[in-house]
Nucleic acid binder design. Structure first.
Lengths: 221, 221
DNA sequence: CCAAGCTGTGAATCGTGATTCACTTTATGT
DNA sequence: ACATAAAGTGAATCACGATTCACAGCTTGG
């Protein structure tokens, strides 16, 4: 026996794996998952088709890894906001603005994660991440209810409703990008409307003043 | 020349077309679009695979026709509610209850229409019908704003948010049905929570009394 | 009854893309 | 340098369903 794994080969292996994932991400960002074939991803990553299978057992696993990586980042972003020292209403408003802003920064990728038709296995992942978003919102909502800032309501359903409220209005414009018909779109106004609707839905009347919204609105780059 | 179409042959043709659509619908209702192949639909309809192509130029057109038929019914249901002589708040609440109730009556079919991964051409149709739902809600919302029952807000975004609020909380349970893991679920409570959230989001505080909600809640079969 | 033109059939064909595999190249430890 | 085990390759294979097509059975007006 003579060959053994070394830190060096392990590092190279991890590197290539990351390179493949990044290549796949670039494709997603441009064409969505529908444009991602093993062959194109291989070419983009600069490896042969067959090599892909040294790093991922099959295409689904590759896609799943990518999906988790990208969705994970987004959810983490929301988690980070939830951890800031903000009132529940402020936290939620900021989530609305950030989510919208980030979606429009990488519209095709966002569409791919949020709504593009996917393999059933990935659809399952999508549900998991929706639930993860909802968990973040639910914790904020419960904090708000305890503080008396929000109405007493079913925080579980409310959190899912927030997920829906946030995603649905973005879908049509994001789909445009996905189809390559990018029209200019005032996503800032959209975020403003959505944040109002979200807070209203929780009965957060008077929790945020116009100035709070305006602050978010103006920070929105 | 000797052959010509007659009312009789036209009727037979229409009949078979309807039979095929209904066969497809049955499959959707059981397995979703992913279970719908030209071959299985043909067998279910009692015709040969090749015959399918006498009635629909290709699978996409068949699916599109089916999708339109089923989604059309659902949207019509909402339109009918919008036309009743109800206050905007009552109309919206009723939409929430009806939508939820109908979704759970045919859970797999509803999941298929609302969220199952589909061919891009069908995904386009889905967007169209989401917009159609939103149009109905928007008309109600605008009525509510004019009447001073709802807050002044962007009715376009609000209508989309309502679509999202209504759909998202149903998704996880409906997906369970789609996966064949049907767990018992109290959809009535869900409808109640959702209707509260919807009305809240529009700033419809005090538009509906508890008794209004209870009425819907109790009518829910 | 006949010719013309539908409608019905289902096995064979086709297209798409994932996956495999026999072979080459590279890395490792003795 | 050598034997061994991975990693790299890309053309060939495979799987899955939609679609086609050559032929058979009906309908119709003349």
């Amino acid at each position: 026996m003579a060959y053994r794994e070394t830190p060096k080969t392990q590092a190279r292996k991890a590197d290539t794996k990351a390179k493949i994932l990044d290549a796949a991400r670039q494709i997603i960002a441009l064409k969505g998952f529908s444009g991602l074939t093993v062959a194109t991803a291989a070419k983009q990553a600069g490896v042969a088709t067959g090599s892909m299978y040294r790093y991922f057992p099959n295409k689904i696993e590759l896609c799943t890894a990518l999906f988790r990586q990208l969705s994970g980042r987004e959810v983490d972003e929301m988690r980070a906001i939830a951890k800031l020292d903000l009132s529940p209403a402020q936290a939620l408003a900021r989530c609305c603005f950030n989510f919208t802003q980030r979606a429009f920064r990488a519209p095709v990728q966002s569409y791919a994660l949020m709504a593009e038709p996917l393999d059933p296995a990935l659809e399952m992942e999508r549900l998991v991440y929706r639930r993860a978003y909802a968990d973040v919102y639910q914790s904020i909502i419960e904090r708000g209810i305890e503080a008396g800032d929000f109405e007493e309501l079913d925080s579980h359903t409310a959190s899912l409703a927030v997920v829906g409220m946030l995603a649905e209005p973005l879908l049509a414009p994001l789909h445009q990008f996905y189809c390559g018909e990018s029209a200019p779109y005032d996503s800032r106004k959209l975020a403003l409307s959505i944040s109002r609707l979200c807070l209203n839905s929780l009965g957060a009347k008077d929790q945020l003043q116009d100035k709070d919204f305006n602050e978010q609105f103006n920070e929105y780059a």
